[in-house]
Design a protein around this nucleic acid. Structure first.
Lengths: 343, 343
DNA sequence: TTTCCACACGCAAACGTTTTCGTAAGGTTT
DNA sequence: AAACCTTACGAAAACGTTTGCGTGTGGAAA
């Protein structure tokens, strides 16, 4: 098992100095053609690759972007990562992904770990616990140490930095409008508890749409789901004997659960009740009926986030001092779950 | 914007040497209690964190595991990563994830990038292109340079290293047996082209099960799908007017596509045709009908892979010289898509 | 007063690079 | 023959750590 070859070893082997080897490999005019060729041949033979760690230490940057997301097993987040990687690789950056598992502590640990030398900047979507706890010291500390942070999706208003979001309220309004436009009046919403920022925003958008259409909003049409794992039972209770003609679910899983519940209760989707979701994931596409939904364009979010971060990493001080919030357009993806069959 | 504080700065500020600071922070008895306390207080105040890069360079290890997978937006792979992270974090390792996007070139680039200082070892599932091309020089080179590699799922027989796999053939046999045991005789298989190792193995398992039950295998029951994005049309052609009573699909997507096609052709699942899948993902769980499937226990795979790698990283030479192949048990998850309703 | 020994701390090397600057050898110019 | 310029290379510092060893200071023992 041969160890990795270093400049020093090449230098020794060829009986020249380390600097000569380094320069030769960089085709420096300082070194004679003869020596250059000799060194390069040797380096190739021994498959020399410069040690990134040493370079990082010397250059005081790692050319690495740290991405921290709440869940790794989650379609939306992985699409965002896809976008980040695209841009990062183009620009010669490496991407390190860590998941916080929605734990505040793990988020802090990961961030500190990456901040102490492994990454030049961060792209981050905060954990549920962090949103609940409202403790953002780790984010502010990293920024204070000169590392730029871009927040996406689950952002924090109180933290001043670059952000990439969708207009959740507007997306929800679009969704609700769509339901209203196909003639639904009694629209229930399945949403999350309020401390999840996106859930709350989507609820607001729903309410706004109703008001714009002069449809009365009713408390009994709103379900805030606590436990996503048992959402089906909660939804089942909620929908029992309820007179509705549409359901707006703030995510895929709630939408699918709703359809199942409705089916069990003898109602057909979309004929009796229209259903619309949020987030265009695997389920939305492949479920029967396929789900009309609001696409968040995760990949675009990743692309924009990465661009913001790299701008900041490579920009001069002016760029660094200003913070931007990019709002990604959502779009309505019409599929079967809201198609009135009579049309 | 204050920069990150280093030992040197603390030393200067406190008018002691760098080594004194370093030792004080480590509570070395060499340093007087007085100085120790002073240094520690100062370090805490300025939020000193040792620079990982410098440590990596010095210790010649990074305490980081590199994971390279073919696709990041893929439920199975992300569950594996979840398992890897669990073990890694327990043992104080960081996890870097890169996706090859099924491209040979990107796999090589990522591997070389991580190998040149960023990771101590690798957990890898190879790209489709790599399997096709049969070029494994990058893997062997990294191993030659002293970095252990653990292959999982999409492995390579020719490369000698630790491996974590499921018994794909056995899993497929279990699936097929299940279909046979509920009375099906005319079982079609939707599989991949042969160069995908797992596809081929699963096909073999299917054939083995048929032989064991003395059910004749028919060429016309086997569809090798080329283009996963258009699988529905391929499947539709294939199943047209075909007299079958069960379908074994080697992945989730093929399974739901098959159900859709069958529905369109007026056949009911599971009443007319039973369908079984492979990989227990989101779709299998939430589809209607929910899919009977073979679970690959992705998280377990990740756990085992990480353990193998860390053993090798921390083990002495004996451990390092021997290579193990861990076979994770698959299990049959029974759901609606194979339930005979008459039962 | 001299000798000795803790004690508390600093020096320097090492990890692998890059890069600035210094310099020896040889050739060219007057 | 003296002065100078190229050419081709080496030395050393720097990035931030850790750690073995050397050393100055003080007090205690003789």
């Amino acid at each position: 098992m041969k160890q990795k070859v270093t400049l020093k070893q090449i230098a020794k082997e060829l009986d020249v100095s380390i600097s000569t080897v380094s320069k030769a490999l960089k085709d420096s005019a300082e070194i004679s053609l003869d020596t250059r060729q000799k060194v390069k041949a040797f380096a190739k033979l021994y498959n020399y690759k410069p040690n990134n760690i040493a370079l990082s230490l010397k250059n005081r940057k790692t050319k690495t972007i740290g991405v921290i997301i709440p869940e790794i097993v989650h379609h939306f987040f992985t699409t965002v990562i896809g976008g980040v990687e695209k841009v990062a690789n183009e620009k010669g950056y490496n991407v390190i992904i860590c998941s916080s598992n929605n734990s505040f502590d793990k988020e802090v640990i990961n961030m500190e770990m990456l901040a102490s030398g492994s990454a030049d900047g961060f792209i981050l979507s905060v954990a549920k616990e962090t949103q609940l706890k409202k403790d953002y010291h780790h984010i502010e500390e990293t920024m204070n140490q000169g590392m730029p942070v871009v927040l996406f999706d689950r952002i924090i208003d109180e933290v001043v930095c670059d952000k990439v979001i969708i207009d959740d309220a507007k997306g929800a309004q679009t969704a609700t409008n769509h339901l209203l436009s196909i003639g639904c009046k009694k629209i229930a919403i399945l949403t999350t508890v309020d401390y999840i920022s996106v859930g709350k925003l989507r609820t607001n958008g729903y309410l706004r749409a109703l008001r714009a259409y002069d449809v009365p909003e009713k408390e009994e049409y709103i379900l805030k789901i606590e436990d996503i794992d048992n959402c089906e039972t909660e939804i089942s209770e909620f929908l029992k004997d309820k007179d509705i003609d549409a359901v707006f679910a703030v995510n895929e899983l709630f939408a699918v659960a709703a359809i199942k519940v409705l089916n069990k209760q003898g109602k057909k989707v979309p004929d009796d009740v229209a259903v619309i979701g949020f987030t265009d994931g695997i389920l939305s596409k492949h479920f029967i009926p396929s789900l009309t939904t609001i696409s968040q364009h995760g990949e675009d979010m990743g692309i924009r986030a990465a661009k913001l971060l790299i701008d900041k990493l490579e920009g001069d001080d002016e760029v660094i001092e200003e913070y931007r919030t990019v709002i990604i357009d959502t779009s309505l993806v019409q599929r079967q779950s809201t198609k009135k069959t009579k049309e």
